[in-house]
């Protein structure tokens, strides 16, 4: 465990908790894309099936359980508990355009043609684009609450930190996984525009709003 990976995990965990607390405390999921959250629930479910097949560490197992459980809790709050506050009219990204191509790609480009491996690969590909409905929603409404911006920043920086982790591991452990690295790069690139707005606006105390 190197520092980049640990900070990445912490930032990922922070993002999940920020979102849960934001919705729970304000009793509202306004501005949050239910579609992105649904995709993240699918990502965690298909990736962490290895919870049933192998044990790595207490840390690994507990983080996986927390990620899966909190993603389901978030989806439940958006589509059931606080359904009335969900802004479905602005959450119009067509998720089949993400699910179908990533599913096909995971059958074509994977490390091993076995069910668990294909599901793992699918989760890596899907995660890289799962934030698009949320970013689409922000661009459509032209603004995001500051707390939502913090959530997006923590979620985006997590994969960026993982890129440094992979460079580290390649350097010192001679381990690398091209599928994870390429998907991680794609995922990070998708956040670049948002990172720029976050640094130039939100960190200076302004609300994130896009020029019309």
């Amino acid at each position: 465990m190197n520092i980049f990976r640990f900070l990445g995990d912490i930032s990922h965990l922070s993002a999940i908790i920020i979102l849960l607390l934001k919705i729970w405390k304000s009793r509202s999921c306004a501005g949050i894309s239910g579609k992105s959250q649904l995709l993240f629930a699918i990502v965690f479910t298909t990736r962490y099936l290895d919870l049933f097949t192998n044990f790595i560490s207490f840390y690994n197992t507990s983080m996986k359980v927390v990620y899966v459980a909190s993603s389901y809790a978030t989806v439940w709050m958006i589509y059931s508990k606080f359904k009335a506050t969900y802004d479905g009219n602005h959450d119009t990204f067509r998720v089949e355009f993400l699910i179908v191509p990533t599913a096909i790609l995971s059958f074509l480009v994977n490390h091993d043609f076995t069910p668990l491996e294909i599901l793992w690969t699918f989760s890596i590909y899907l995660e890289s684009v799962a934030i698009l409905p949320q970013l689409f929603m922000v661009s459509k409404t032209g603004e995001a609450e500051t707390i939502t911006s913090h959530y997006l920043f923590a979620l985006g920086i997590y994969r960026t930190l993982y890129l440094f982790n992979w460079i580290w591991r390649y350097q010192f452990e001679e381990f690398f996984d091209l599928i994870a690295i390429v998907a991680g790069l794609v995922q990070t690139v998708l956040y670049c525009d948002f990172f720029y707005l976050y640094i130039t606006k939100v960190l200076k105390g302004k609300k994130l709003s896009l020029p019309a």
Partner: peptide
């Protein structure tokens, strides 16, 4: 190339 993820990463 050796696998790293799915084994010990999140």
């Amino acid at each position: 190339c050796k696998r790293i993820m799915g084994k010990d990463e999140l």
